[in-house]
Design a protein around this nucleic acid. Structure first.
Length: 200
DNA sequence: TGCCTGATTGCCT
DNA sequence: GGCAATCAGGCAA
């Protein structure tokens, strides 16, 4: 089942946790790739200086202020993209950064795009998974409930989280300097496919 | 294993 | 002009 707009139009931390276990699907002419979300980070409008939207709307972060359930993809460090899911009602600049996936389908295509055959190195980081899934800046602002990039609940799950609360750990976020102490990174406990650093 | 650095570009001050 | 929600590779221990 493709997650509907309703799923995203909630509290950002709730969505960040609920996204764990969901499947990101990208259909391209070259083939279809699917990954299970195993690591996310929440970025909040208020009280979170690390959030791109913290200082207000700009050209770069405009999508974060738009309707939820859309992709916010930005370019960073001159060579990488990061993929986020816009959350919270329109006008509230919040999003969830997807930091790691467990590769499920289209693994040969991911290997080709990433130029490696190491399964644990295909999607274990925000820049890596964008590369492995074949995403680009063109998808910035696209809805995630209507292809080519969509997020699905695994069969037999609805809007509720697909994982037990006890299976989720919260840690400080990665690679930021501001508000570095806030526990807004969420991972599946003991998952092999998360980006390296763990800080339980 | 873990720390340090270079690569490379658009956006914001 | 500075910096950024990163990554890969090099080097030391």
């Amino acid at each position: 089942m493709i997650l509907p707009l309703l799923f995203y139009e909630r509290d950002t931390v709730t969505v960040a946790r609920a996204l764990l276990g969901m499947r990101l699907v990208h259909a391209t002419p070259g083939g279809r790739t699917v990954g299970r979300i195993v690591e996310t980070e929440a970025y909040l409008f208020n009280g979170d200086p690390a959030c791109h939207a913290h200082k207000g709307k700009t050209k770069r972060n405009a999508v974060m202020f738009g309707p939820p359930g859309h992709a916010y993809i930005y370019f960073v460090y001159g060579m990488y993209y990061c993929f986020n899911v816009v959350t919270a009602p329109e006008g509230i600049g919040e999003a969830v950064l997807v930091r790691a996936l467990e590769p499920l389908e289209g693994i040969p295509l991911m290997e080709k795009r990433r130029h490696t055959r190491a399964l644990h190195n295909l999607c274990s980081g925000p820049g890596k998974l964008v590369q492995a899934m074949g995403m680009s800046g063109e998808l910035n602002g696209c809805p995630l409930y209507r292809g080519p990039l969509t997020i699905h609940a695994p069969d037999s799950f609805g809007l509720e989280s697909t994982v037990q609360e006890a299976e989720i750990i919260a840690t400080p976020r990665i690679g930021i300097t501001k508000a570095a102490d806030l526990p807004l990174r969420f991972c599946l406990k003991g998952n092999q496919f998360a980006s390296r650093r763990t800080h339980p």
